[in-house]
C-alpha cells in the first residue's frame, strides 16, 4: 500500500481549473518529485493535500485513511507535513520558537528535544541563530527554519514546495544533502521543484505536471532520457 495516494484529484479557484484529475502514488521510503512550469498547479496540489484548499473532485489517501475534507491540523497529526512555498515562518518569533511551534502536536517533551538536536545537527547554522527573529534571517537560513519546523512535527511524509527557490547554487546543494539526509532517517519525501537538476539528483521517481495535468511519470532514468523533460527543463 502506498503511503500517499491521490485519485483523480481536481481543484478549482472559483471557476478556473488549477489541478485536473491528478492521480499519483508515493511509496513509503521514497523521494518522489513533481516538476512543472510556473502555474502548472504544483502548489495547489500540495495545498489540497494539506486541506488548505478543498478538492472539487477526487480522493486523497494517506496510509489507509481518506484525508480529503479533514482539517489541516488533523492531517499534520497523521504525519503529513508541508514545508510551504514562501516558507510562511513567524517573522517576529525567534528561530527556536518557530521550530518548537512546529512540534505543536508532539506531546512528549524528550522527543521534542531530541528532534531539535537532530535539526541542529542537520542545520548547525540554526543553532547559532536560535535567538534571532526568523524574519531577520537570510533567505537560505529561513528555508532551513522552514524545513526544520516541518521536521519538528515528526513527519512520515514531508512535502516540500520549491525549497531551492531563490537560493544560491551552493545552498541548493546543501538543501539537496539535507533532503537525502532526511530520507536516510526514514522519512518519505515529496519534492516539488522547478530546479530539475536538484529533483533528478535526489528523487527516485517523478511526475511532470503541465497546466494541471500529469503529462508524464516514471522512475528517474526514464525521466532523464525523456525528450519532453530534456526539452522543457534540461535545455535540449
Amino acid at each position: 500500500m502506498a503511503l500517499l495516494e491521490t485519485r483523480g484529484v481536481t481543484v478549482h479557484y472559483g471557476k478556473s481549473l488549477a489541478v485536473e484529475d491528478v492521480s499519483l502514488r508515493v511509496e513509503e521510503g521514497d523521494v518522489v518529485s513533481i516538476i512543472g512550469a510556473n502555474g502548472a498547479g504544483k502548489s495547489t496540489l500540495l495545498r489540497a493535500l494539506m486541506g488548505l484548499k478543498p478538492v472539487t473532485d477526487g480522493e486523497i489517501f494517506f496510509g489507509d485513511e481518506k484525508i480529503d475534507g479533514m482539517r489541516t491540523n488533523e492531517i499534520v497529526k497523521r504525519g503529513l507535513i508541508l514545508v510551504p512555498e514562501g516558507r510562511r515562518l513567524f517573522p517576529y518569533l525567534s528561530v527556536l520558537t518557530n521550530l518548537r511551534l512546529g512540534a505543536s502536536l508532539v506531546e512528549d517533551k524528550d522527543e521534542i528535544e531530541k528532534t531539535l538536536k537532530d535539526v541542529y545537527r542537520l542545520f548547525p547554522r540554526l543553532k547559532e541563530r536560535r535567538n534571532q527573529k526568523a524574519g531577520t534571517l537570510s533567505g537560505g537560513e529561513q528555508q532551513m527554519v522552514a524545513i526544520g519546523r516541518g521536521l519538528m512535527g515528526k513527519p512520515k511524509l514531508l512535502c516540500m514546495d520549491e525549497p531551492s527557490l531563490g537560493l544560491a547554487p551552493i545552498v541548493v546543494e546543501a538543501v539537496g544533502e539535507a533532503i537525502k539526509d532526511i530520507n536516510g532517517k526514514g522519512v518519505t519525501v515529496l519534492l516539488v521543484e522547478q530546479n530539475v537538476h536538484l529533483a533528478l539528483e535526489v528523487a527516485s521517481s517523478c511526475y511532470a505536471l503541465q497546466v494541471g495535468r500529469v503529462v508524464m511519470s516514471g522512475d528517474m532514468d526514464t525521466m532523464r532520457s525523456s525528450d519532453v523533460v530534456k526539452k522543457a527543463y534540461l535545455g535540449g
Binding site: T72, N73, Y92
Partner: peptide
C-alpha cells in the same frame, strides 16, 4: 503572524 504557517505547524487554529 502567519495563519497558514500556523495551520501547517499543526496548530488547531
Amino acid at each position: 503572524q502567519d495563519i497558514e504557517g500556523a495551520a501547517l505547524s499543526g496548530i488547531n487554529v
